[in-house]
Design a protein around this nucleic acid. Structure first.
Length: 333
DNA sequence: CCGGGGGA
DNA sequence: TCCCCCGGG
């Protein structure tokens, strides 16, 4: 879920289009897979599956979206999470409970014949498992797209790569990458397009955030932004009851972070969380190279192994070959 | 999420 | 050319 900073950050959002996003971008892989798995479903909530019942929604999303990326000059690198920090265990456990409950509610809704509710609960029950991660990595390798294995949080690694200038931005739905110091964040990169929400169709466009503009605009430092996160709650702490983003901003602007913590949550030590955001485990051990897609390997994997339609896969691959202007990898900021 | 087909 | 709807695996 990340950190709920929307209320104070939304003024610094810049809407854009995929076409404008040409360049190298570090995608939070887990976040992207989760979104594909959550969104690519039938009206009753059933995900796409091959003949053996293995889920393929994440592969479909990943494949077609990457073709679009490459075609438009976006060069993605997928950053996979490593072992989660101990600080995250409460959040992980809570999410598991919510997911399990949604799985039950999905079954019940199906039994009642309530499609809309079934779809909603199915989405909330989405769970990325080890098989999905390894099949995703295999597909990315076949597409010639680099992967990076983060030692800990993928967003921290993506932020590190963006700080070094190896990528132009970190792509994730969560704002955490900003707390980890990413100079540029892109939301909605993997889900942009037309979508139906309660009957109405809305267009979801990529949106970028510039860390320096946010900090300047709010008159705070990155440390202050981290403090705001800690006050409203992160994946690593529950936050202070009754304190939302706007209140947290005021507290931090007045330099009242420490006082507020000792008053409202005297038992809580924010030190470890602050340090985790400011100096997270990351690795320099990665190499970013994009190869041309292995057509035969992709067809073999997707069509023979996972029952994708050969016509669809091949016509998508076709678009990659004949596209010019591949040489536009300059940063866009 | 995606592409494709058919209708406007 | 655009848009909506459908089925994908």
């Amino acid at each position: 879920m990340g950190v709920a900073l929307r209320d104070i950050i939304k003024d610094y959002r810049q809407e854009t289009d995929l076409e404008e996003m040409r360049g190298v971008v570090a995608v939070d892989a887990f976040n992207a897979l989760y979104q594909f798995l959550s969104i690519i479903r039938q009206p009753d909530g059933t995900p796409l599956m091959d003949r053996d019942g293995r889920v393929t929604s994440h592969l479909s999303g990943l494949f077609f979206r990457n073709v679009n990326f490459l075609e438009k000059g976006v060069r993605p690198v997928y950053v996979f999470d490593g072992a989660p920090p101990e600080l995250k265990s409460t959040t992980i456990e809570k999410r598991r409970e919510v997911r399990d409950a949604a799985g039950e509610a999905w079954k019940e809704a199906l039994a009642r014949g309530d499609q809309e509710e079934a779809y909603k609960q199915a989405r909330a029950s989405a769970k990325i498992d080890a098989a999905m991660i390894s099949s995703a990595k295999r597909l990315l390798a076949l597409m010639g797209i680099p992967c990076v294995q983060a030692p800990s949080e993928g967003e921290a690694q993506a932020a590190f790569m963006a700080q070094r200038g190896d990528v132009g931005a970190a792509a994730s739905q969560d704002y955490d990458a900003l707390l980890f110091g990413a100079p540029h964040l892109v939301r909605n990169l993997t889900i942009s397009g037309k979508r139906k929400m309660r009957g109405r169709t809305v267009t979801v466009r990529p949106e970028t955030y510039d860390l320096q503009s946010v900090l300047d605009g709010l008159s705070i430092t990155r440390e202050g932004l981290v403090e705001i996160g800690i006050l409203v709650g992160t994946d690593f702490n529950p936050g202070i009851r009754g304190v939302g983003a706007k209140t947290a901003l005021k507290i931090v602007q007045k330099g009242m972070f420490a006082e507020t913590i000792s008053e409202k949550a005297p038992e809580f030590d924010p030190g470890p969380i602050r340090r985790f955001f400011l100096d997270p485990p990351v690795t320099e051990d990665y190499r970013l190279t994009w190869e041309s897609p292995a057509r035969d390997g992709i067809v073999e994997m997707l069509c023979e192994e996972y029952a994708f339609s050969e016509g669809r896969v091949e016509s998508a691959l076709e678009r990659l070959g004949m596209k010019t202007g591949q040489k536009t990898l300059d940063a866009w900021f």
